[in-house]
Simulated scan of single mutants.
Amino acid sequence: MQQKLISLAIGATLLATGGAMAQEVVKIGYVGPLSGQSAHLGTDTSNGARLAVEDLNAKGFKIDGKPVKFVLMAEDDGAEPKQATAAAQKLADQKVNGVIGHQTSGTSIPASRIYYNAGIPQISASATSPVYTRQKFNTTFRVVANDLKLGGTLGKYAVQKLGAKRIAVIDDRTAYGMGVATEFVKAAKGAQIVDKQFTTDKATDFNAILTSIRSKNPDLVFFGGMDSVGGPLLRQMKALGIRTKLMGGDGICTEAMPKLAGPTAGDDAIVCAEAGGVTPVQQKKMEEFAGRYRKRYGQELQIYAPYSYDAVMAMATAMATAKSADPKKYLPSLAKVSYPGITGTIAFDAFGDIKDGALTLFTFRGGKKTLIEVVK
């Protein structure tokens, strides 16, 4: 009798253990710059994805009626294309169920082929180059507006709202910087582009190009690049007596920009746009998320955390609809997903671009990012 009870106890233990082991683990990869000049942005985006994973687990998210456990597998690409493809291949080899990333267009584009070949859905929360979603890869998505809209909107705003007549343009030669600058120039109809200059995403000395620009007497300078370069660029603009506004895309539209630019980031010295944005209807959700983010991480969110959060949630929603976390099975559902996110409804067009993507125009006042308007 005792032996029988022992056997029953062992059997019950094995069943319990087996049940625990049977819980499916859904691996969500994240790749972005967790080191280097843009680490603050990559960390912000990673934090947003991690918060989504924690929320899914806390509410016992189910796929086909069975609870699953989500895990975030974060990789650092240093905003470098070669490092990005190595990280992408690592995640593909680990058979992740989906990927959030990469941060920049220059890393998202080369990595996207690896995910496509592996059949793994990829959603970027920040890459804006049109090329990214124009490669005929059905695995490629983004939750922010692309450069066609970002640069185009800024170009129109510069001429129609700021009254710019003579514009100098600088880009950092990255896919993002060149893309947004090109679209800006196309849309800035009615203004004269008095100078075009180039730098790099690692540069710190802009004396030569700014001296050239100063001689052309522009009334606006547009920069296609990130805040790590844009901040020092603005410092040196002011040091050389170039008193015009600096305009740029989401790369310089960060909470870190005033710190990087120092005292030169005075009131209304910068006009920038985020590739995303929430209408007043969504503002309460965004404020609640910002509060939760602050409590969880002890810091203010930068830009992309709400978008990476929505990207994870849209991916999970597609899995639930398809009743499977198998990439091949839930990919068609992801293409047709409609998820009411923090940043708005996440739904994709035939290219994998966000439908009806919004842009938010900002300036800085008192060192704080200040809303100008949301446009669609």
Rank of each mutant, 00 (worst) to 15 (best):
L51Q: 15
H40L: 13
V96R: 00
D64L: 10
G98L: 03
V53N: 14
G60H: 09
A88D: 03
S105Q: 06
D44E: 02
A92V: 06
T43N: 13
A84N: 00
H102E: 02
S46M: 12
T85D: 00
V99T: 03
S46I: 00
R50F: 07
G65H: 10
G60M: 08
N97Q: 05
L72H: 14
F70T: 09
D77W: 06
D77S: 05
V96A: 01
R50P: 06
T43W: 05
E80Q: 09
K62F: 06
G101W: 07
K69C: 09
G101T: 14
G48I: 05
H40I: 13
L51C: 06
A49Y: 02
A52P: 09
F61C: 06
S38F: 13
R50T: 05
I63A: 13
I100M: 09
S105K: 05
Q89F: 00
D93F: 00
Q103Y: 14
G101K: 14
P67D: 15
V71M: 07
Q37Y: 13
H40D: 15
K90G: 08
K66S: 13
P81K: 03
A86H: 00
T104C: 11
H40E: 14
A74Y: 07
T45L: 13
E54S: 07
V68T: 09
L51N: 07
Q83M: 03
N57S: 03
H40N: 14
G60T: 11
T104N: 15
A92C: 04
K66M: 10
A79V: 06
A88C: 05
Q103R: 10
K62T: 14
G60N: 11
P67S: 08
G65Q: 12
A49I: 05
G42N: 01
L56V: 05
T104S: 15
A87I: 03
L72M: 13
K90I: 01
M73F: 03
K66H: 12
A86V: 02
A49M: 06
A58C: 09
I100N: 02
K82M: 08
D77K: 06
G60D: 14
S38Y: 10
L41S: 10
G78A: 13
A52H: 08
A58Y: 09
G101H: 09
G60S: 09
D44N: 01
T45N: 13
L72P: 11
Q37D: 14
L56M: 07
K69M: 12
K82P: 07
K90F: 06
G65L: 11
I63R: 13
S46E: 14
D77N: 12
